[in-house]
Design a binder for these strands. Structure first.
Lengths: 135, 135
DNA sequence: CTGCATCCCAAAGGATACTG
DNA sequence: CAGTATCCTTTGGGATGCAG
């Protein structure tokens, strides 16, 4: 699982530095909204701001703006402004974003396959906490 | 990518309900600390509270407690209390947690392979924002 | 009318002190 | 050692304003 073992860059003593960088990137990318936006764009190609928000569901305009800006900065999506009236802005996934989406695919599959198991675990946990002592 | 297409449960009109459930689960699981904790436990087997915090790195006790509780509730880890003095609590990944870790493996690989590309994209974005106009 | 910035408040998160 | 409780700071969400 770890990144330590397969260092692909030029050799040196920067193993821990690379590890740190990758961890930061994971922290950035392993974000609820980022993943949901990425998935929406991967499914529907290009979307306008409002429509994208609808597809994601339950996200505020503020967070959508922030998330999408971050993703644009990271090179995961492109933002195209059409200077027309009424204004039109389209967000589109990039090849890099597509590769991340593909990498994250396994997690989607995991969620669809194990969500019942998770819910059972929760029920059990809540039940045990309610009455019994645990330890 | 989507879950819509391969519904594995009994047929019915509950596609959107399942979709919602899976999305909620993704929102829960696609969390920075959850993934980092999961990875630490996957690499090192069983860890005590403090040691786990050290392995994760940069996490506060409060968030570690919260994250680990959540994960225990979701059935991703087990929490074993040894009634000794000083107290000893060990956290261990479950088979379910292991499966999630494996599913998330692709994202780790993506991060290690593309972090340079992301950084280049950021530099370019910041550079463009500094001086030029974008649209 | 669309897209975003701003304001304000609620909630999440970090640091510290304290208990079993 | 492993938390819980208590601050206080930061972040996120809803509503509103405003430019194109």
């Amino acid at each position: 699982m770890s990144v330590k073992m397969r260092d692909q860059g030029p050799p040196g003593g920067n193993d821990s530095r690379l590890e740190t960088l990758v961890r930061e990137l994971i922290g950035r990318v392993a974000d609820k909204w980022t993943m949901l936006v990425l998935d929406s764009l991967e499914e529907h190609g290009a979307l306008r701001f409002t429509r994208l928000g609808e597809m994601v569901g339950g996200i505020s305009q503020k967070m959508l703006t922030k998330t999408v800006r971050q993703m644009e900065r990271d090179g995961l999506v492109t933002r195209t402004v059409y200077p027309v009236i009424p204004p039109k802005v389209e967000y589109k996934i990039t090849p890099l974003g597509l590769s991340l989406s593909a990498a994250f695919c396994g997690v989607w599959e995991w969620a669809s396959q194990h969500h019942e198991e998770v819910e059972r675990a929760r029920k059990k946990f809540d039940h045990a906490s309610t009455k019994g002592r645990r330890s």
